[in-house]
Design a protein around this nucleic acid. Sequence first.
DNA 1: GTTTTTCTGTAGCGACCGATAGAGAAATGC
DNA 2: GCATTTCTCTATCGGTCGCTACAGAAAAAC
Lengths: 213, 213
Amino acid sequence: MVSSEETEAQVKTAARTSRLRGRPRSFDRATALEKAILAFWEHGYEATSVSDLTRVMGIGAPSLYAAFGDKRSLFEEVVQEYGARYGSFGDRALAEEPTVRAAMERMLREAAVEYTAPGRPHGCLVIHAATNCSSPEVEESLRVRRNANIAAFESRIRAGIAAGELSADTDATALARHVGAVIQGMSQQARDGASREELEAVAEIAMAIWPRT
Amino acid sequence: MVSSEETEAQVKTAARTSRLRGRPRSFDRATALEKAILAFWEHGYEATSVSDLTRVMGIGAPSLYAAFGDKRSLFEEVVQEYGARYGSFGDRALAEEPTVRAAMERMLREAAVEYTAPGRPHGCLVIHAATNCSSPEVEESLRVRRNANIAAFESRIRAGIAAGELSADTDATALARHVGAVIQGMSQQARDGASREELEAVAEIAMAIWPRT
DNA sequence: GTTTTTCTGTAGCGACCGATAGAGAAATGC
DNA sequence: GCATTTCTCTATCGGTCGCTACAGAAAAAC
């Protein structure tokens, strides 16, 4: 119904069939979809209004609805295309690396690169597309609090280094970020249905990075 | 302007001052605030409308605006009260435990408990208050994709176990969840301004849990 | 050129958003 | 009692939301 293969296939066999009559659309569907990806990626599903979409895609609302259906089906197509275009590094790492360890290492390292790539929104669309804030002040306020938590972790870790619990060359900043990442991930998974026992198992694994006294 | 200390202080000194005249409000401010915490916690800032708030708080819109100011200042008060009431386990662990390791372990374990406590929304309000989705279908679709990713990790880990790379009693489910949590946390921090180098340092630390062949 | 089909722009639909005006009710100080 | 202050209820504001009816323009098939 939406697939571009359909149109392409019918372009090829159109000499005989009676399709492809009438005025063709005046914009490039793939380009418009790419613009929609960036918009949803940056602002999330709710906070990206249809008028935002028509502006960045450079088309009118009726053209958008004719080409992509309603807002939700456009978003579904966006997520799918995003997965194929930007979100496939994980699958590739899992499939191509010979060992689990190599696969995990490559996946994590590529995530660091992909999630901070310049010229496009940071982070993962699938993780954040439900994150919408039309109020920048609220968004900023929450971000400040999260980063303050990580700073508190770091300060505690530095105290531990000063007390001789951890070696003097410990990277306190990175350790704090790591703990923060684990906690934020646990929170996300709690939202996604993980049980207490499952999260406790995650916590126990995360503890393996800390020297046993 | 908003603080309850102000009102309380003036209750105590009200015998002389001319405050506290007129009809007192007919609802309990703290109870109403608690209801607002639960609503924002569950649905996020944007997706919790003022009419949602007036419904769960059991008051009319003018009463809400008179008692809490506009929606944003109510939310700020909600975040502050949430931090004091539900979000303090981390600070307590950091302050009360004698070693960094003990502090981190307690914090992570208590997070597992707090984030899945029955009878209230899962996860952390500060992490998710910018996550709003008035469309359950979209929310579900994204959740399914995130959980599918973790399932893919698990499947790859099981293959590694079968290949003898990891010991046979490895908890593949928990390992997969852990990797997923780290990645989700990295994505969140990329959104919050972390650089590529900072995320790579997190990835490197997370690799410490994997046996070196 | 004519017909047919489809696209595009304008203009507007009903619904909900956050927020408020105004009137009357209720509880105070005196 | 009275005067004063403040709360609460109804009704509604202007604005934006996702979405679409309609008419005219444009490009194909013939």
